[in-house]
């Protein structure tokens, strides 16, 4: 019961933050996911609630995540003609973006001397958490740290990419959407999708494509990537 109340409270808080951001006409870089999480984090710290208890209390939201990913299919279906017309650039962009995502993660981790644990966790950080967890479990990597880095990457991308790509004149729905899906998975998809359903369809295709590519390519290359 308390789990349902807590989960409903988080949804209500999130929707209130979304409305407040719109009402104050704040820039696209203000992420409602991040604002809500910071508010709840402060609340947990103030009340001394352990994170494990919070995780148990939000189990209903965790259970909704898989059906919500399935639900992205509705947006993809509604824009299927546009997506099909963009098939070739979309496929090439997902491939090039995913390759640069994994390569930049590994090279930056090594160049900056992040150490073996963070380097291993960083390999899967450009894909959404379910994909990251699956791959890290398969290769015996640091699963929960990798999931956290994936979420953090999504937030960084959701905050930085829309203003950056708009400044580079790469801000149309197909371009920004695909980039947000490939580089910042679900958080990026949510960020661009709240403003533009077509961008959400491209982002959904991008995040699933990138996830599948990483799931196929990373395990065989693991010793080389994380070693």
């Amino acid at each position: 019961m308390s789990a349902l109340v807590a989960s409903a409270g988080i949804v209500a808080a999130y929707l209130a933050v979304v409305r407040m951001i719109r009402w104050l006409a704040l820039p696209a870089a203000v992420s409602p996911v991040l604002v809500t999480a910071l508010g709840i984090g402060a609340l947990l710290a103030a009340t001394g609630t352990p994170l494990a208890r919070f995780a148990a209390m939000t189990m209903p939201l965790h259970l909704l995540l898989a059906p919500a990913i399935v639900a992205l299919g509705a947006g993809v279906h509604a824009n299927r003609a546009t997506l099909r017309r963009a098939g070739r650039p979309l496929a090439l962009a997902v491939t090039a973006g995913t390759a640069s995502g994994v390569a930049s993660a590994v090279l930056l981790a090594r160049a900056l001397g992040l150490g073996p644990l963070l380097t291993a966790a960083t390999v899967t950080r450009t894909v959404s958490t379910p994909f990251a967890v699956l791959v890290q479990t398969r290769v015996g990597g640091p699963v929960s740290l990798a999931a956290s880095l994936a979420v953090a990457t999504g937030v960084v991308g959701a905050v930085l990419l829309p203003p950056l790509l708009k400044a580079l004149r790469l801000g149309d729905a197909a371009t920004l959407g695909t980039a947000a899906g490939v580089a910042a998975h679900l958080v990026g998809t949510d960020a661009v999708g709240r403003r533009d359903p077509l961008a959400a369809a491209f982002a959904g295709a991008g995040l699933v494509g990138a996830g599948i590519l990483v799931a196929l390519v990373v395990p065989p290359l693991w010793p080389w990537l994380a070693g």
Binding site: V11, Y14, A37, G154
Partner: peptide, 26 residues
């Protein structure tokens, strides 16, 4: 099912809040 699916997909942001709070574990 499309209207309900769109509604649920619109709540993705709220569903990501708990894992983001969980980042504090690390």
């Amino acid at each position: 099912s499309i209207p309900a699916a769109r509604g649920l997909a619109g709540l993705l942001g709220a569903l990501i809040v708990p894992p983001l709070v969980g980042v504090a574990t690390f």
